[in-house]
């Protein structure tokens, strides 16, 4: 084969190969989504959302307490993580250009990569050993520790996106620096910050490992932060690894619920950023 034909063939080959890479990624994704929906939909009913789990073999039952538990713990985590995470992000955007800022940014970036199970051990040490019991609070602390680094970095990015011209305009009017930041810059970046928060919340809602030995699990309703609490993710895990067929199908249905929740949060985040882009014009 003459060299030119060979080179053209190689060109086509690698184009096809990169396309194959896409298929290798997308086919499992499609399979997963399809199966979660098709298996999960079978057990989906209004009562699934509001009932307590039933013992094996008994009909009915649901993951109501797990849904509440997830909301509860993610809510606790957000209360703790938002001020710290967003605040650190504002710091990085406003004062983060020096060596201290660089060190903090680097630390945040590295912290974001710590495995969530290790965070779970930390929360165990901080809360569970002190309270001598598993609790929703411990779970919330674990989730908060996971949310803070990524919140800080995302917040910084969004605040830096605000054009400096806006800051200059405010300063030129005689508004002091701190007020400019607080009343002009941050509100402008707010849409982006909310997007970052939604994404962090979605991530926290999907975490399992750190909850396994902080919040443990609970077969009943619970809104007491000092008690163990159920969560969607842990419930799915327990159902999936059990030897019972009907719990397996409950796992699929619970997975569908989780996917809907996480999907909704991501969708809201996406819509929000799109509106911001459109509105900015």
């Amino acid at each position: 084969m003459n060299p030119l034909r060979w080179r053209r063939f190689v060109n086509v080959f690698w184009t096809v190969a990169s396309g194959t890479g896409v298929l290798v990624a997308l086919i499992p994704l499609a399979s997963l989504l399809w199966l979660v929906v098709s298996h999960g939909a079978k057990g989906l009913s209004a009562s699934f959302f509001v009932s307590l789990p039933t013992p094996v073999g008994e009909p009915g039952g649901g993951v109501g307490n797990a849904i509440v538990g997830t909301f509860f713990m993610v809510g606790l985590a957000s209360l703790m993580a938002l001020p710290v995470g967003v605040g650190a992000g504002v710091y990085l955007a406003e004062k983060g250009d020096g060596p201290a800022g660089r060190a903090i940014r680097f630390t945040a970036e590295v912290l974001a990569g710590v495995p969530s199970i290790v965070i779970g051990i930390v929360a165990y040490g901080l809360i569970v050993t002190q309270m001598r019991r598993f609790s929703a609070l411990a779970g919330g602390v674990a989730l908060a520790l996971i949310m803070v680094p990524s919140l800080a970095r995302s917040t910084e990015e969004f605040i830096r996106l605000v054009p400096t011209a806006l800051r200059e305009a405010s300063l030129a009017l005689g508004v002091p620096g701190w007020k400019t930041s607080l009343r002009v810059i941050i509100p402008t970046a707010l849409g982006g910050i909310v997007t970052a928060v939604l994404l962090a919340v979605a991530r926290a809602a999907g975490e399992t490992a750190p909850l396994l030995f902080t919040a443990l699990n609970n077969q009943y309703w619970n809104l007491d932060p000092t008690q163990p609490t159920a969560s969607l993710t842990v419930q799915i895990y327990n159902y999936a690894i059990s030897p019972y067929e009907d719990w397996h199908s409950k796992a699929w249905t619970a997975a569908l619920v989780l996917l809907l929740l996480v999907g909704l949060l991501n969708l809201m985040a996406r819509l929000l950023s799109r509106n911001r882009m459109a509105g900015a014009r």
Binding site: A25, P28, L29, S31, L32, L35, V36, A202, A205, G206, E207, T208, A209, T233, I236, Y237, A240, I241, H248, A251, W252, A255, L258, L259, V262, G263, N266
Partner: peptide, 16 residues
């Protein structure tokens, strides 16, 4: 793909 919780990957992995 990036947004799917890992326990759901595990579920699909185990049964499919």
């Amino acid at each position: 793909l990036a947004a799917i919780p890992s326990v759901i990957f595990g579920l699909w992995g185990l049964f499919v």
